[in-house]
């Protein structure tokens, strides 16, 4: 078996607020294989973005702090590098795109001013060559008339176009890993579909690995090979995406899947949606035992006091729930 492209081990991230410290990510471990799209799903506050940011050490410190763990890439631990060494990796080997492309592009610079920036930083190309490369990148992400676009400012582009520019910038040094944090959430449905198609095609062309953060289970089935479901800073379920979403095991994943209205559901007489009662717990007052137990429909006494560990139930499919403990 080929070694994984990226191995996150026992990652603990905490934040401090008003003098008290609470954990945002609770010792999670996962591998990213070569050439795969790995999705991390969960609701807001579950720690998915914090996980992604921690990989490149982009967590603001303070209030955040990476307490322990390791992120192995190329047999080095990214968490132990100096910030200068890390800068060589960011944008060259691992790059990132964000939810809101408008706040990520510099509004006072034209695309031609900012697009070649990572190329100039990481390669020995000249300014002119970097400019040409920038145009080629815009063409690769299917932006019409790329040469003219180089002289435009971000506000002159639509949301979908801006996200394409962000993707072009992220791909400019042919990274081995792309971390995409909710890349389609701010976009309209038709544009979402375009960006998803684009990401899939680019992944196939370049062979890079992708970590996709999203709250949309639909996108996961469309594009990801494997999926991690997070809840309150923990991984509750992890496995191949098709199998996991067709037959989820953790009550939280089941609840998430059922709470999404499906086309034709009403015609079949299903008038009410299945809901998960209650709210996502705030990270500074997590319940004891399994963090999902106050909302869980199949809760048993043991869940209230003991926290289940992530256990493999089938090859490649792991779940942390007492209900599935016996099946091992």
């Amino acid at each position: 078996m080929t070694p994984p492209e990226l191995r996150v081990k026992n990652l603990n991230v905490s934040f401090s607020r008003n003098g008290s410290e609470f954990a945002a990510v609770n010792g999670i471990s996962f591998d990213l294989c070569k050439g795969e799209i790995l999705a991390i799903v969960g609701e807001s506050g579950c720690g998915k973005t914090v996980t992604a940011l921690s990989i490149l050490r982009l967590i603001p410190e303070p209030p955040g702090k990476i307490q322990s763990g390791s992120v192995c890439f190329n047999s080095t631990d990214l968490l132990k590098l100096s910030s200068r060494q890390l800068q060589d990796i960011r944008g060259r080997d691992i790059s990132m795109i964000f939810q809101d492309p408008l706040t990520c592009l510099n509004p006072v610079l034209t695309l031609g001013d900012q697009l070649p920036e990572p190329i100039l930083r990481h390669t020995s190309l000249s300014r002119k060559e970097a400019w040409e490369k920038g145009i080629a990148l815009l063409r690769q992400v299917e932006i019409p008339s790329p040469t003219e676009k180089m002289d435009q400012f971000p506000h002159q582009l639509s949301g979908g176009m801006r996200q394409r520019v962000m993707i072009a910038m992220a791909l400019s040094c042919s990274p081995r890993i792309l971390i995409a944090d909710e890349p389609t959430t701010a976009l309209d449905v038709l544009i979402q579909a375009q960006i998803i198609d684009l990401l899939r095609n680019l992944k196939e062309q370049t062979g890079m690995s992708v970590i996709l953060i999203t709250h949309d289970l639909g996108i996961v089935t469309e594009i990801a090979q494997r999926v991690i479901v997070m809840y309150a800073g923990d991984i509750v379920e992890m496995g191949p995406s098709q199998k996991l979403l067709q037959a989820p095991l953790h009550p939280y994943t089941i609840g998430l899947k059922n709470s999404i209205p499906k086309l034709g559901q009403k015609r079949e007489g299903d008038k009410h949606l299945t809901e998960i009662p209650g709210n996502v717990p705030s990270p500074d007052q997590l319940p004891s035992g399994c963090p999902f137990h106050p909302r869980c429909p199949s809760v048993v006494e043991r869940c209230k006091t003991q926290k289940p560990a992530l256990k493999e139930v089938e090859p490649g499919h792991q779940v942390s729930c007492w209900l599935h403990e016996s099946e091992i």
Partner: peptide
């Protein structure tokens, strides 16, 4: 039709063919 074609179906687990609508509004 385009709006309906891009709704992913979790049930089937299969990728639908997007009706490709080019460009922006």
């Amino acid at each position: 039709e385009a709006l309906l074609s891009v709704i992913p179906s979790i049930e089937s687990g299969q990728r639908k063919q997007h009706l490709l609508v080019k460009g922006d509004i």
